[in-house]
């Protein structure tokens, strides 16, 4: 509930008159929530997580605590933290007799981009992650599938395209706003994104339907890195092989480190087929991928106010 995605979902649930919401996170919610309760819990504090869930006895659990490297978490901690928190939630969920469903955040990175793999996989495509974040998501999904088999509680795995939006810490969003953007060798491969405002639509549809299985959540259309840079008046620099070592070092120094899965997105592309999601959940993203990029470039730059002027 403390991140932008959790707050967005909680806001939507908070506006429903017949729903009681309880959130657990390390950080407090980013918006005022009229009725929802929030508990600040360290990710390592498994006992508190389980106690709170047992006391609240929820009908549904929305688990968005899957950490993307270089978003809110460093790459070394993101895997362990994501797996640890997922295990804690599922362990607590196994002791809730009235639980009807769980919705879990996953991502398109879980498919991987091996040579010869399909450019636009659907939910039936094989899971063969090729990056650290992809392997984290695969592990989270494996834990969820095991839980579903044991408990018969349906688990929705929402495989989000890279999420970009005005207030969400997104490594690819930060990267594409650099004045000079290293991109894959031209012509570079296409990728799809998802606006952070669209995330609650998919999560809540999955929860309302108690849907089981994976669902690709992708904005319509695709874009390439060089297109995305040009649309914002940035300079795309085609980069190849060892050139990426230098490019990643420089962009890291500029405050926009490019994680492994971000590099894969730029050089190998990342799109997916969301036909199954539209047919089953009945939702599509409101923003197209191009609109997500336009929104990205229209954000005002951060300007620091002097303390006396701010007051």
């Amino acid at each position: 509930m403390g991140g932008h995605l959790g707050t967005g979902v909680a806001l939507e649930l908070d506006s429903r008159p017949d729903v009681e919401v309880m959130g657990i996170d390390l950080d407090p919610p980013r918006r005022f929530l009229r009725n929802a309760k929030f508990h600040r819990v360290q990710p390592e504090d498994r006992r508190s997580t389980q106690r709170l869930l047992r006391e609240f006895e929820p009908d549904a659990i929305i688990h968005l605590g899957v950490y993307e490297p270089h978003a809110r978490s460093n790459p070394h901690a993101s895997h362990d933290r994501s797996v640890f928190v997922t295990e804690a939630v599922l362990e607590a969920a196994s002791k809730l007799p009235d639980l009807s469903c769980i919705v879990v955040r996953s991502g398109l990175e879980v498919y991987g981009r091996h040579r010869g793999s399909a450019m636009c996989p659907d939910e039936s495509s094989e899971i063969r992650p090729t990056t650290r974040y992809g392997r984290t998501l695969a592990k989270v999904e494996e834990l969820c599938r095991d839980f579903e088999r044991r408990s018969d509680v349906p688990v929705s795995l929402i495989r989000f395209a890279p999420i970009v939006g005005p207030h969400i810490p997104s490594p690819i969003g930060r990267y594409l706003r650099l004045p000079v953007v290293p991109v894959g060798m031209l012509p570079d491969q296409p990728f799809s994104l998802l606006h952070s405002d669209d995330v609650p639509r998919f999560v809540l549809a999955a929860m309302d339907l108690c849907a089981s299985g994976p669902f690709n959540a992708v904005a319509e259309g695709a874009i390439t890195g060089s297109q995305a840079a040009r649309m914002g008046g940035k300079l795309p620099v085609p980069t190849l092989g060892p050139g990426w070592i230098l490019a990643r070092a420089i962009t890291g120094l500029l405050g926009s480190p490019l994680p492994e899965h971000g590099l894969e997105l730029l050089t190998r592309g990342r799109t997916a087929d969301s036909t199954h999601t539209t047919a089953t959940l009945g939702v599509t993203a409101e923003y197209t991928t191009s609109e997500v990029i336009k929104d990205l470039h229209e954000w005002a730059p951060v300007s620091y106010l002097e303390p006396n002027r701010a007051a």
Binding site: C120, P190, Q227, A228, M231, D273
Partner: peptide, 11 residues
């Protein structure tokens, strides 16, 4: 030059 052309998810 402005990147305002369409590329579909298959490239």
């Amino acid at each position: 030059l402005n990147g305002e052309f369409d590329v579909d998810p298959w490239g």
